[in-house]
Design a binder for these strands. Structure first.
Length: 313
DNA sequence: CTTATTACCTGGCAGC
DNA sequence: TGCTGCCAGGTAATAA
């Protein structure tokens, strides 16, 4: 049982995969269901990764980006590639011994040279994997070299092959909320630009990357802001509170390894412990921890939304 | 350009 | 008990 992976859960998975699998060489790739790999056959996917070494495990918003490189012996120009993964609602990446039973909905298994396996599991079948060339800078916004390259390629010639949607989503991501780029001023300018409910603004990955339904509700509670407020209606003091709440909630959730996500590693399951610290998410009917008023659940911006009608204005 | 709506998919659960 | 039907959730495609 696991909650939907948002930034803190994906960061927790990133740390575990990095600790257990980084530096390991891929000795086999088994694709049980090719639909999870975008725009590439299972055979090509396997061929491009087999024999390469996992050199880096990064996270951007809710995306994981695994960099693979050919062995150093192959020379400095050796091929590199990046595996981009989005776990969506129910995806999991686990590292475990090969003897562990292959559970239902295990879709891709990477055999590693330390005897462990990296497994992609997704019981709701919404997540996807894609490959991206290693030479591309890739994970940032407004990549100047990428834009220039695209511009030249597009001039007068046939349109370049469509990129997997997963990679387009990755490129379109907004600011990383725990980075130095995410300032009060940056948030303020986003809010001035984007119309609509603050809840919808927080969930828009093109503005701030990594916040999903759980943490949107928790952030708005901490900031004392009603989810139906519009972004451009917030006073400067409220924007500052919102900024602080985004960083505090996400950082605290990472410290507790996320919300009820079961990160199965090396024979030991470790449960994220942030679930016990949730203040409003799925607490409707319970007393607000601040004022005692019953927490309300309502639909805001098309999402189930939980808030305190007294504390959040 | 922006913003709203819908499809995708399965397990879990309410209702009968 | 066993069946039906409906819902959550994030993203991209489609609609307006």
């Amino acid at each position: 049982v696991s909650e939907v992976p948002e930034l803190p859960e994906v960061e927790t998975i990133r740390r575990i995969v990095s600790a257990k699998a980084r530096g390991r060489r891929v000795i086999s790739v088994t694709v049980h269901d090719p639909k999870f790999i975008q725009d590439l056959s299972a055979a090509d996917f396997s061929a491009r990764l087999t024999g390469k070494t996992l050199t880096d495990v990064a996270r951007r918003g809710k995306y994981l980006v695994l960099t693979f490189a050919a062995d150093a012996a192959a020379g400095p120009d050796a091929e590199r590639c990046r595996l981009v993964a989005h776990l969506m609602m129910a995806g999991r990446l686990i590292v475990c011994p090969p003897g562990e039973p292959i559970v239902k909905h295990t879709h891709v298994v990477f055999g590693l040279d330390n005897g462990l396996e990296l497994r992609y599991i997704d019981l709701r079948h919404f997540g996807r994997l894609a490959l991206m060339d290693g030479g591309e800078a890739g994970t940032g916004r407004a990549d100047a070299t990428g834009a220039a390259r695209a511009g030249r390629a597009g001039a007068g010639a046939a349109p370049r092959p469509a990129e997997p949607t997963l990679i387009r989503g990755l490129r379109a991501l907004g600011v990383e909320p725990l980075s130095d780029d995410f300032t009060v001023v940056a948030l303020s300018s986003l809010l001035a630009r984007r119309k609509g409910r603050i809840k919808a603004v927080l969930l828009d990955q093109r503005l701030v990357a990594g916040i999903g339904n759980i943490y949107a509700d928790e952030v708005l509670f901490m900031a004392g802001i009603h989810p139906r407020r519009t972004g451009d209606s917030l006073a400067p003091a409220e924007v500052k509170r919102l900024h602080g709440a985004i960083r505090a909630v996400l950082a605290q959730a990472i410290e507790h390894r996320g919300t009820t996500i079961l990160t199965y590693v090396d024979g030991e399951g470790r449960r994220g412990e942030f679930a016990g610290l949730l203040q409003v998410y799925q607490k409707h009917g319970a007393a607000c921890p601040r004022c005692g008023t019953a927490i309300v659940r309502a639909e805001v911006a098309g999402r189930g939304t939980h808030f305190c009608p007294r504390c959040q204005r």
